[in-house]
Design a protein around this nucleic acid. Structure first.
Lengths: 205, 205
DNA sequence: CAGTGTGAAGATGTTCACAGCG
DNA sequence: CGCTGTGAACATCTTCACACTG
């Protein structure tokens, strides 16, 4: 059943390794050791080695990892060797902030089209992304063959929107609405829950 | 050292229990069982019971948990029985989206003041929150006795802003910048990392 | 007798410690 | 000699299973 029993946590850390590597590469370093990584990311160096070794023997004993090569490997593992088109539902506060957010412009992810049910928003453009009518969503997603959906609608609409996205062929959903979505298990779900983060945070204060 | 060795994961789930409870209360139910919770939240019922039992014996055998009472208990455990004022640094895309976001208006959290170093933004108001000059941040946070900071500045400025916040007396930081912040260990940190979420998500596709 | 609370077993993740290679 | 890769020990979290009680 499992791909190869790679801990979820390892996958969690890969993006951090990648980000760290990209910085290091910018600084011109050719090699990086697990100890080096572990300092920058506040984790155990054995963890770094184990994480990386799940995917192959990338390192050279006595030396470390070649930064360029490792970055390429991690990008490939994470499926970042292609550009991902996304559809965004809900062009309200957070939705339009994401449309304006240029962190995506680095190339891996791009919001191709946005949807809203507010007629005043439909037809407008934000940061070059057209806002279309909510009821055209399924068709557009299908026609454009979009596989990633972002949900930034109010909580009470989130499940319905998610269902429509899945129906239209979306395989992964990033949900900002504070609701637990019920999706077919083959659909991947990531949740960003700001209130939850705050509530956890203050527990520890 | 540990408070009482309550799993982080348990704390992670408390906000979900709470949200679920509030829905149930709205629907008029007086009791809820662990099995009931487990269906709604997709987790094991023993987990629910164990999580709740870390904090006391809240349930009644044969019946379940009293919704109102349990909600109150959880709010108290999470320290949500007071209002938390927050300071927000960086009134750009995400920052202003958070200012406009009315999920906070439920009462537990409120952005009291925002800061930006762009002179064009300073002096403006977004959703009733004044934007002040970045260099007044330390003083204002200290004067207003604010204990929670939100960082929505670009990644390369995040560490500096975080340091200033800590210097000014902030005890918890919610960071939206895609950087690993280095903070004194007594300062609580929560991270919202949208790109990381997406990168993880597509790994599984 | 339905549903809690909880030891004990099981599963998952992390760290240690060291053999082995460049 | 330095650093990787990895079995084994350890730590943490989840699930099972059942005694117990309102």
């Amino acid at each position: 059943m499992k791909e190869r029993s790679i801990p979820k946590e390892t996958i969690d850390r890969l993006p951090l390794y990648l980000r760290c590597l990209e910085k290091i590469i910018d600084e011109g370093d050719v090699n990086i050791s697990s100890g080096n990584f572990s300092e920058k990311l506040n984790l155990n160096s054995a963890q770094v080695r184990k994480d990386l070794s799940y995917f192959g023997d990338f390192g050279t004993r006595g030396v470390g990892y070649k930064t360029e090569t490792l970055a390429k490997q991690i990008r490939s593992i994470l499926h970042l060797d292609k550009k991902w088109d996304m559809a965004l539902a809900g062009a309200g506060n957070i939705g339009s902030a994401l449309l304006t957010y240029n962190g995506f412009d680095e190339g891996d992810f791009e919001v191709k089209v946005a949807f809203d049910k507010d007629p005043d928003l439909v037809g407008k453009e934000i940061n070059g992304v057209k806002i279309e009518a909510a009821d055209s969503m399924e068709k557009v997603i299908r026609d454009e063959n979009i596989k990633l959906g972002i949900i930034t609608v109010p909580a009470d609409a989130a499940q319905e929107v998610a269902d429509q996205m899945v129906e239209a062929g979306v395989e992964g959903v990033l949900n900002f609405a504070p609701t637990l979505l019920n999706l077919p298990k083959e659909i991947q779900l990531a949740q960003v829950d700001i209130t939850k983060e705050l509530e956890q945070l203050v527990y520890y204060l």
